[in-house]
Design a protein around this nucleic acid. Structure first.
Lengths: 146, 146
DNA sequence: GAAAAAATGTTGGCCCGACCAACACTAAGG
DNA sequence: CCTTAGTGTTGGTCGGGCCAACATTTTTTC
C-alpha cells in the first residue's frame, strides 16, 4: 500500500478519522449478521441503561438527531425490539420501552462490539488500551459540555 | 447535555467515532474560509510531498476512491491550484502538478489544521498528546497493510 | 389567566465522505 | 499475440449526521 503524506500521518485528526473508518466498518460488518445498524445499538443501550424514554431524550443521549430517531425507533418497533406508545401523562410525547426480544438483540450486539474493540485495538497491550481509552475519554468529555 | 449510556462511553470505537466527528467539523469549518474540503487538502499534501502524480496514485496515497479523485482534482484545477495534463509517456494517464497558487493554498490549510489539532486535543498536555498520537499511529499502521 | 417561549414528533430534504459497478482505453506480461 | 492489469471517467448507492419547517402540546413568563 502506498504511504500517505507525512503531513497526514502525523496529525491526530487524520489518525482518528482513519481509525473511525475501520471501526465503523468492523462494527457494520459485525452488525450485518444481526440485521441492525449503529443507531439501533445506541438506542437499545440507552433504553437498557436508563429505562423507558421519550424519543427526544433518546436523541440527546445517543447523539442522534430527532428526525433520525423516528426512523430508527420505527425499525426497532417493527422487529419487536421496542414498544412505542403515547405517553399517558403527555399529549405529544412517546414512551419507548425495551422488550425482552430487544434485550436479547442488545446482548447479541454487545458480543459483536466486544470483538470489534479487540480487532480494532489490534496490537496494543491491555495497559496501552487503557491509556488510550482514558486519553480519548478525557478529550471527548472536554468537547461534550457544549 | 444528557449523558450517553456507559456502554458507549467506555468503548474505544465510540470515542474514536465521536471524536472524528468533532475533528471533521473543526476542519470543515476552518477550511470554509479557504473554500476547500478535506479531499483537497489530502491531494495538495500528496503532490507537495511526492511531486507530480497520476490520479490513481493520488487516490492510493490519500485513501480516496479513483472516482472521487476525478472530481476533487477537477475542482482544484478550476481554481488553478493544480495542473492536469495528459502524461506524455502514457496514453491514458494524467499528470497532476502542484502550482504556486496551490502551494499557497496548502500553506493556508496547514495553518488551519494546526489550529484544529490544538482545539481538538484541548486539555491534553504535550506529553499526553504525543502518547496519544503514538498509540493511534501504532493502531492505524496495524490496519493499513491490509 | 393569557401570551410568549420551549419542547415533541414527524416529514422531507441536503451534505460529506466513502464505496462500487461498469465502460473505454492503454500498458505490461505471459 | 492475447490476456491481464492499470487508468480515467460516469453514475449511482449508502450510512451517518444535520437542518428547516410544521402541528401540537407543555412550560414559562408576564
Amino acid at each position: 500500500m502506498d504511504e500517505p503524506p507525512e503531513r497526514l500521518t502525523t496529525k491526530p485528526s487524520w489518525l482518528i478519522g482513519q481509525l473511525s473508518l475501520y471501526a465503523r466498518r468492523l462494527a457494520f460488518d459485525g452488525f450485518a449478521a444481526t440485521g441492525a445498524r449503529g443507531y439501533h445499538y445506541r438506542i437499545l443501550a440507552a433504553l437498557h441503561e436508563f429505562g423507558p424514554a421519550s424519543q427526544a431524550e433518546l436523541g440527546r443521549r445517543c447523539r442522534v438527531d430527532r428526525s433520525d430517531v423516528v426512523a430508527a425507533v420505527g425499525e426497532l418497533a417493527e422487529r419487536g425490539f421496542v414498544d412505542r406508545t403515547p405517553d399517558p401523562d403527555h399529549g405529544r410525547r412517546n414512551r419507548v420501552t425495551l422488550t425482552d426480544d430487544g434485550l436479547r438483540q442488545l446482548r447479541r450486539m454487545d458480543e459483536v462490539l466486544d470483538r470489534v474493540q479487540d480487532d480494532l485495538l489490534g496490537p496494543l497491550s491491555a495497559e496501552d488500551r487503557q491509556i488510550l481509552t482514558r486519553l480519548l475519554g478525557r478529550v471527548l468529555t472536554h468537547h461534550e459540555p457544549h
